[in-house]
Design a protein around this nucleic acid. Structure first.
Length: 333
DNA sequence: AAGCCGCTCAACCGCTCTCAT
DNA sequence: GATGAGAGCGGTTGAGCGGCT
């Protein structure tokens, strides 16, 4: 190995992305879909390496990313999954598809590590009774836990087999009758644990709103130079009305009030060419489950997840985890 | 007001994995 | 099976920010 880094080329820009660059990248993805990152710099004229483009899209611009504070349930889930899977941030993120692996990793390193350390430092009594989070506070033996996992995996396999035999989508990809958020998007994981967080779900609209925040602040006089005319139209609308998430509150400055009275979600829908994130959009959800979607998803069941679930070495069935409720299983930890 | 310190998170780096040839 | 290229992942860094002295 030791192959030279792809960014060694001359003229490759590093550092923070500018709104102009974001727009170029978004325009590219709008046209070609995510993937084939190698082609992005040449196609768009971006002076960024392909990896940087992918990362920027995956961690920042991708629709469906939820930003801001983690809910208690998300926190618990991360702690639990980390205890189970270790620092497999991508795997953990697959259970929280509206969070990026980078976000989860950062949150773990900046918040949860400390929190757990404090808990660990506290008394066993407090640790077990109050929080019940840390892997170090498992009140059951490893053997018991593994037996339970075996059972869970078996049950998940059975459910999956049944589902496939009926030629239906796996149940974990199909939200139940829970009402969607205002965009009609269902976060495709943790039906029980996510319930409380729906109202605060930061739609993809806000990702672009965030993008525009910098755009309006940094380049108010520059003409938009996006490749795509639709992009230009959308961004010229400067529709910042929807900038009310936790992100918006971080910077309660004038730019968040800059608006033309146009709902940014419309601009965003126009930009990306699909109507919100409808629960019927199984391709999109499948892509979320897989972490990153490929240019041509087709209508396949997400193989990655199925493989993982069916893998004898798999630690835990998805079905089980998505239905897992910490509140309903206080005895486990 | 200025300097210091700690925290957060976007982005980079280096490595591994996967797939096509 | 070997090789090379692209994609993905996890660890780390550093700029920016806010709080404290």
């Amino acid at each position: 190995m030791g192959r030279p880094p792809c960014c060694d080329k001359m003229g490759v820009k590093k550092g923070p992305w500018t709104p102009e660059e974001d727009i170029m990248l978004v325009s590219y993805v709008q046209e070609h879909g995510p993937g084939n990152w190698r082609a992005v710099p040449t196609s768009t004229g971006l002076r960024r390496c392909s990896k940087s483009c992918r990362l920027r899209w995956t961690n920042y611009l991708r629709p469906g990313i939820r930003r801001g504070d983690f809910t208690d349930d998300e926190e618990k889930m991360i702690i639990q999954l980390q205890a189970l899977l270790g620092n497999k941030w991508a795997a953990i993120a697959s259970y929280l598809p509206e969070r990026t692996d980078n976000d989860i990793k950062n949150y773990w390193n900046t918040h949860l590590k400390k929190k757990l350390r404090k808990l660990q430092a506290g008394s066993d009594h407090f640790r077990c009774k109050d929080e019940g989070l840390s892997s170090s506070s498992h009140s059951i033996s490893r053997g018991q836990w593994e037996r339970r996992l075996q059972t869970d995996i078996h049950m998940a396999k059975q459910a999956l087999t049944d589902a496939l035999s009926l030629d239906e989508k796996p149940s974990f990809l199909v939200p139940e009758s829970k009402p969607s958020d205002s965009n009609g998007y269902y976060p495709c994981t943790s039906k029980t644990t996510q319930a409380a967080s729906y109202p605060t779900y930061a739609s993809s609209t806000e990702n672009i709103a965030r993008l525009l925040k910098g755009w309006t602040k940094n380049a108010p006089t520059k003409p938009v130079q996006a490749n795509s005319s639709s992009t230009q139209h959308s961004f010229n609308n400067n529709a910042m009305t929807d900038c009310t998430s936790s992100e918006g509150t971080n910077t309660p400055t004038a730019e968040s009030n800059i608006n033309s009275g146009i709902d940014l979600s419309e601009a965003f829908e126009s930009l990306f060419g699909f109507e919100s994130f409808d629960s019927s959009n199984s391709d999109f959800e499948a892509s979320l489950v897989q972490g990153e979607n490929k240019p041509n998803l087709g209508s396949q069941v997400p193989i990655t997840m199925l493989d993982w679930l069916l893998d004898e070495g798999a630690v835990l069935g998805k079905e089980d985890l998505t239905n897992f409720s910490f509140d309903e299983n206080p005895d486990l930890f």
